[in-house]
Design a protein around this nucleic acid. Structure first.
Length: 269
DNA sequence: AGCATTGTTTCACA
DNA sequence: TTGTGAAACAATGC
């Protein structure tokens, strides 16, 4: 669920509904999600303050708070979402019991006005931290420059899909968005990154930008046109050719090997 | 029952 | 030392 578009949705909910509200209680007792801090450390750091800014870089959220003290990091992992006063930020698809009292609620901030901000995550791979370190992340997928994108992507001979998934190169692209972008740009995920031409790279970046913006607008990466066809018996929604499947960059990858779609270029040597 | 999973970190290895 | 890929992580869905 959470790739950049879902995290941006979560950021929006926080920015719209959670700013300026005094925090008077925090439940940080989940020892797996709230790490590596001792129970109560995050609570102690947040009590009495209020969120002033909700920032995002790639899939990482960083919340700034009033007064002295650390920032708060939220990463939604594989299946997390943020809920503010019952409003869901992240993948909007209903998956049941996103309530404050659900056993799948892993972290909660209570505001003095009676409202709350919660992190809900069935699979429990979300992370809540203090002073999240963003230094290992590359430029955000929405703001990376053409020059940064072309140079960094092409600086390795790994498959292009693996480069897109590398958060140090460009932050925010997840498995589904990577498949969507490569399909839209008609580039095989197996293509060695350093063999792409400057023009191909520039087009790929433009496609990444448009696909990401569209996914944000449509309410999540699961709305992307290729996603329903990433399955056995799936066919390319553009040319009807059966989709191909392989593990690329360590992740399940689907693409259309049809002529004029994402067919790999013939290598003559 | 067994396998897959929208993410990240760790570890083994070349 | 650096880059790469597999495994681990937790829990659920099919």
């Amino acid at each position: 669920m959470p790739e950049l578009p879902e995290v941006e949705s979560a950021r929006g909910v926080i920015a719209r509904s959670a700013l300026g509200r005094r925090i008077n209680q925090v439940d940080d007792t989940d020892r797996y999600v709230c790490r590596p801090h001792a129970s109560g450390e995050i609570a102690h750091s947040l009590n009495g303050r209020s969120i002033t800014h909700a920032l995002r870089r790639g899939k990482q959220l960083k919340l700034c708070l009033s007064g002295p003290g650390p920032t708060l990091g939220i990463h939604l992992g594989m299946s997390g979402r943020v809920i503010v006063d019952g409003e869901v930020g992240g993948d909007p698809r209903f998956d049941g019991m996103g309530d404050l009292d659900s056993s799948w609620t892993r972290f909660r901030i209570f505001f003095a006005d009676g409202g709350y901000l919660a992190v809900f995550d069935k699979r429990r791979l979300a992370r809540v931290t203090l002073n999240p370190n963003l230094d290992l992340l590359g430029p955000d997928a929405l703001t990376i420059t053409r020059r940064q994108f072309c140079e960094q992507i092409a600086s390795s001979n790994r498959p292009i899909k693996a480069r897109l998934l590398d958060q140090r190169v460009v932050a925010g692209v997840g498995n589904l968005l990577a498949d969507q972008v490569l399909w839209a740009a008609r580039i095989s995920p197996l293509t060695p990154a350093s063999t792409l031409t400057r023009a191909e790279l520039a087009h790929l970046q433009q496609t990444l930008l448009s696909c990401t913006l569209e996914a944000i607008q449509q309410g999540g990466v699961h709305t992307a046109s290729l996603v329903p066809h990433r399955k056995p018996e799936g066919r390319c929604p553009r040319c009807g050719h059966p989709m191909q499947h392989a593990i690329v960059g360590g992740r399940a990858t689907w693409w259309c090997p049809g002529v004029g779609c994402q067919q790999e270029e013939y290598q003559d040597d």
